[in-house]
């Protein structure tokens, strides 16, 4: 909401406001500040939460986070793959950027 180009702004034909333009990948992340996002991490981890801060490494601070971790165990007898997901909630979380695989803006963060 807050990140959309303001309709009240004068017809932005030549100089679109820098704030809302998307010219490089990190701009997409900037537009997601104060929005819920989906983050896929190394080690089969997924986060959903509100983006409060990030930097060029994709270090982030997320609020009201839900983390889902997918574990794949192998049944030693049947060789069957047993997939289970563990979920937990964290109020406020710093995420180190080196584990980030993808960040998706609100639309997909259902």
């Amino acid at each position: 909401m807050s990140t959309a180009a303001s309709p009240a702004a004068p017809a932005a034909t030549t100089n679109p406001p820098v704030q809302s333009s998307v010219e490089e990948p990190l701009d997409l992340v900037r537009l997601s500040l104060d929005e819920n996002i989906y983050v896929k991490l190394r080690g089969d981890r997924e986060l959903r939460g509100k983006l409060h801060a990030f930097d060029q490494h994709l270090n982030m601070v997320l609020g009201d986070v839900e983390e889902n971790v997918t574990h794949v165990d192998l049944n030693p007898e049947t060789q069957e793959e047993i997939v289970r997901t563990t979920s937990r909630k964290v109020d406020m979380l710093f995420v180190r950027g080196d584990g980030v695989i993808l960040v998706s803006p609100p639309a997909k963060a259902v």
Binding site: L33, D34, H52, V61, G63, M92
Partner: peptide, 29 residues
């Protein structure tokens, strides 16, 4: 480090978001 769990009460999220917007602007500009 994978995560740092933070005390929510110690964090001003509005201030943090402003800082993040300012941080990323100069390099992209």
């Amino acid at each position: 480090v994978r995560y740092v769990h933070l005390p929510p009460a110690a964090i001003d999220t509005a201030l943090l978001q402003d800082a993040a917007r300012r941080e990323i602007q100069p390099s992209t500009a």
